[in-house]
Design a protein around this nucleic acid. Structure first.
Length: 213
DNA sequence: CACATGATCGCCT
DNA sequence: GGCGATCATGTGG
């Protein structure tokens, strides 16, 4: 049957349409993505992940992120220096995308950090759509990905190549940031407790049960 | 609200 | 062959 599972859907949700130019948003320079990964994870709060589809822009304001720190991080796909075709984009220059499939049906979108050769990344866990859009639409890494129609097909693309996937910001930094351990990585033992999850305290779109905020 | 479970398959060992 | 960087739905208190 022509089953249409989430992993095949690359169409952005129509409610997420917005006009980047009207908000005066600019883009981060390459050097921004070469900095400390946890620092970047915090700085990305408030930035807009945007996708151009058939001439229109769709996007959301990022409100929750997690940092994954590479070879020494037991929770990262690049733990122990692993290097396979799937995770190759993690080794690319900062500013690229790393997208993977989890549980056979959901996608997770990451922004690669650090210079090429260092496999670190920031998982985008939740975002707010444009004004008036249901708060749950992008609240969770898989929902954020599916809301914008981002699939593994986008893994390895460069956010700074003036393409259809971009990261915009308006110069304002998130001023109220919460920090907790990362979600869903209990298998990583001690690394699971590292305080590498960040979220905008003032946002109602942050994912997970109330206890995790 | 707090769990518990099933769905579903690519990736890695 | 085992297991996820998840989510929706169901149960029970």
């Amino acid at each position: 049957m022509g089953r249409l599972s989430s992993k095949n859907r690359s169409i952005p949700h129509p409610l997420l349409r917005f006009a980047p130019e009207s908000l005066g948003l600019t883009e981060f320079p390459r050097s921004f993505f070469h900095q400390d990964t946890a620092y970047i994870a915090r700085r990305l709060l408030g930035a807009w992940l945007a996708r151009r589809f058939k001439g229109q822009w769709y996007g959301g304001r990022i409100v929750e992120t997690e940092a994954y720190l590479g070879s020494g991080d037991a929770a990262a796909h690049s733990r122990g220096g692993r290097r396979t075709p799937r995770i190759e984009p993690m080794y690319m220059d900062g500013g690229h995308l790393y997208v993977f499939l989890v549980y056979g049906m959901h996608h997770c979108t990451n922004v690669v950090t650090r210079p090429a050769g260092i496999a670190e990344a920031v998982l985008l866990r939740a975002a707010e759509g444009p004004q008036g859009i249901p708060i749950k639409l992008l609240s969770g890494p898989a929902k954020l990905s599916s809301g914008l129609g981002i699939t593994v097909a986008a893994s390895g693309t460069d956010l700074l190549s003036a393409g259809n996937l971009r990261l915009f910001h308006n110069g304002n930094r998130c001023s109220s940031i919460g920090t907790t351990r990362r979600i869903g990585v209990d298998y990583a033992a001690e690394a699971a407790e590292w305080p590498l999850r960040f979220f905008d305290r003032r946002s109602a779109a942050v994912s997970g049960p109330a206890g995790l905020k």
